[in-house]
Design a protein around this nucleic acid. Structure first.
Lengths: 332, 332
DNA sequence: CGTGTTCGTGAAACCGGTTTCATGATGGTC
DNA sequence: GACCATCATGAAACCGGTTTCACGAACACG
C-alpha cells in the first residue's frame, strides 16, 4: 500500500500537491498533474480512507436505520438507495431496530457513533420529537413518514390519496356499501388512508357507516378478524378496502373459510402491492407506492443536505392503483 | 467532542493511559482506572472512530455483498447478520451487485476500498476462482453457496438433502410418478436439489424418467412452462417437485389454468418457503432453510476469521419440510 | 521599473487515536 | 543489602491523509 508521501517522492512533489491532484483541484500545473497522475497509476495508489476521514472529519458514508429489515419492501428500497449512494461514492451502513423505540434509538446512536455523514431513517417507533431533535444535529432524511416539524426532511407517500384511490375505484364499479379495515389509527399512515376513504365516500354523497370501519393493526390476523366481524353484521357490505395487503390477505382467508366468492360477492382492495398480492388467487387489487422513486429522492435529498443545502419540503409521492382480480361490480 | 488528550489532562494521566483504560487493558492501577473512568463519564468522551481506525488499521466493520437485495430472503438474513455484528460492535456496510459479475466485483472492490475488516458474500455471479482468490487476501465468508476450494469459508445449505426430503415426502404419500422442475443445472444449488430427487427415487427402486426432469431457470414463468410441458406428455405424473417456490407458483398457475385440482390430481412441493408460500391457495408445501441460523453462523465465522482463527469447514445446514396443502396421496 | 496580484508549490501543523520503549517504583529472592 | 522481575505510567513516534500559511515566480499595471 503506497502512501501519499511515496507518491510525492517519486513524482518529485510534496504530499500537498498529490492531495490536490487527488481531489481534482484546479490550482495545479497541468504538467505537474500529469506527472503525479502517472505515478499514482504506476503505483496503484489509493488514499487510505481512515486517514482521509480523520483529516476531513467525513466518513463518506451514511447510515440507514430500519425498523423491520425483514419487511416486505425493504429490499426494493435498499436496492435503490444503495445504488444511488454508491454512485456518489458514499457507503451505506445499516442498522435495524426491530420496531422498538429503545432499539431504534440504539441503532441511531450506533450509526452516529460511527460518525456517519447523515442518516436515512425508516422507523415507526421513534417519536416525532426525537426525529426533529435528530434533524437539528445531523443531516437526516425520514423515509415513508411525515413529521410536520421537519417536513423538509421527509420523503413520504400520499396515503390519503391512496385510501381515496382505492375507495374511488370501488365506487366507480358501483359499490355503495364499502367497509374499511384500517391499521392502528394512532399510526399516521393508517389514519391518512382512512381519511382518503372518508373523502371518497363524502364526495359521492354517501354517508359513512362508522360500524363499517374496523380498526386492526396491519397484521393478517387482524384482517381476518375484522372481516369476520363485518360478516357477522346485519348490514351486508359489497366491498372492503383493507389497510394493507397483509390485512387483505387475512380478509381473503376469512372469506374463503365461509365460501364467500370474491370478487362476485365481495370486492377487496389491499395496500402496498407486496410480492404476494400478485400470486394470491384471485390476484389482489391493491395500491402501489413508487418506492424506487422515493428511495432515489431520499438518497438525493440526503446527499444535498450533507452538502449543506437547504431544501423545500418534498412533495408527497403519489400511489397508483394496481387492478387485478379482487374487484368487480357488486352482485357481479 | 472531547479528545483523549483532554480526558488525560483532566485525569492527570497521559493519553496512553486513557487509551489503556478504554480498551479495558489489565495493566492499569485500579485507582487510576477509576479516576479516568470518572472523567470519561463526566465529559461524555467517546473515541473518534476515524482516529482509532487509522491507528489500528481496523474499520471495525464488515461488508456484505448481495446480488439481489430485492430477493425474498435477504431481509431475514440481513436482520440476523446485523444484530449479531452489532453485538460485537462491528458495523455492516452493504453493497449490491444485481446479479451481474461485473457489478458484483465492483461491489467487492468498493467495500474493500473502504477497508472492511472482512466480507460476507452472497453472490451468484462471482466465480469460484474469484472467491477463492478473495479468501486468500481478506477474511471472507461465502453465504449460501459451497465453494470447494475454500470450504472453510462457506456457510451453506444441504440442497441435496432438501431435494431428497421433498421427493421422499411425495414417495411416502404413495406417489410413484414424480416429475422434477429444476432450476438452471449449471447452478450448484439446482443441481444438488436434483441429485436429492434422484437419490430418493433410487432408494425406492424407482427408475427415474429423464423426460420428467425439466430444466428451468428458477423463474415463475419457467415453472409454468415446465408444468405445461409435463401436462402435454402422454405419461401422466401425480406429483411434481419444483426447484424453488417461484417455479412452484408458476406450476400452480399452469394447473389452475387447466382446472387441474391440487393436490387431488397433482401434488406439488416448492423450495425456499418464501412469504408467499403460506398465502397462496392451496398453501404451498415447501422446503424451509434455517436462514437465521445460517446468518448467525456466518457472522460468527467471519468475526472469528477476522481474529485470525482457522476453522474447520462448517457442516451444511439442514433444510426441513414444511407441510401445507399441496401434497396428498395420489388420486386422493 | 516598482508595486500589487495571481499562481503553483512546499513545509509543517493538524486530525485523534494506538503503540513502543524507557523509566521509576515496588516487591521478592538469596 | 544487592539484584532482578514486575508493574504502572508517560513521552513520543506513528498511522496517512488535509489544510493553512508562506514564499518565490510570473505577470499586470501605472
Amino acid at each position: 500500500m503506497p502512501t501519499i508521501r511515496e507518491v510525492a517522492a517519486r513524482a518529485g512533489v510534496s504530499p500537498a500537491t498529490v492531495s490536490r491532484v487527488m481531489k481534482g483541484e484546479v490550482r495545479v500545473n497541468a504538467e505537474t498533474r500529469a506527472r503525479v497522475e502517472a505515478v499514482i497509476k504506476a503505483l496503484g495508489y489509493a488514499p487510505n480512507v481512515f486517514a482521509r476521514s480523520l483529516a476531513s472529519n467525513r466518513l463518506n458514508g451514511v447510515g440507514l436505520v430500519i425498523s423491520h429489515l425483514g419487511g416486505p419492501f425493504m429490499g426494493r428500497v435498499m436496492m435503490t438507495l444503495e445504488a444511488a449512494l454508491r454512485r456518489a461514492n458514499v457507503s451505506l451502513l445499516v442498522a435495524s431496530g426491530g420496531g422498538e423505540a429503545g432499539r431504534e434509538q440504539e441503532a441511531v446512536d450506533f450509526l452516529l457513533g460511527r460518525r456517519c455523514d447523515g442518516l436515512i431513517v425508516h422507523a415507526d417507533a421513534l417519536s416525532n420529537a426525537t426525529l426533529a431533535g435528530l434533524a437539528a444535529t445531523t443531516p437526516l432524511v425520514v423515509f415513508n413518514r411525515r413529521v410536520p416539524e421537519i417536513a423538509e426532511h421527509c420523503i413520504h407517500l400520499d396515503n390519503e390519496c391512496g385510501g381515496y384511490l382505492a375507495t374511488r375505484h370501488l365506487l366507480e364499479q358501483g359499490h355503495r356499501r364499502i367497509a374499511c379495515l384500517t391499521g392502528p389509527l394512532k399510526q399516521q399512515d393508517a389514519a391518512e388512508r382512512l381519511a382518503g376513504y372518508r373523502r371518497a365516500l363524502r364526495e359521492e354523497g354517501i354517508e359513512t357507516d362508522e360500524h363499517a370501519i374496523i380498526e386492526g393493526d396491519f397484521t393478517e390476523r387482524s384482517g381476518e378478524q375484522g372481516m369476520a366481524t363485518l360478516l357477522a353484521r346485519e348490514a351486508a357490505v359489497t366491498a372492503v378496502v383493507a389497510g394493507n395487503d397483509d390485512m387483505a390477505l387475512g380478509a381473503m382467508a376469512a372469506l374463503r373459510a365461509r365460501r364467500i366468492s370474491m370478487p362476485q360477492t365481495i370486492s377487496l382492495i389491499g395496500y402496498d402491492d407486496e410480492a404476494c398480492a400478485r400470486h394470491v388467487v384471485p390476484a389482489l387489487t391493491t395500491v402501489h407506492a413508487p418506492l424506487e422513486e422515493m428511495a432515489q429522492a431520499a438518497a438525493e435529498r440526503l446527499l444535498a443536505l450533507i452538502e449543506g443545502a437547504t431544501l423545500p419540503p418534498s412533495t408527497p409521492f403519489m400511489p397508483t392503483l394496481i387492478e387485478r382480480e379482487t374487484v368487480a361490480a357488486p352482485g357481479g
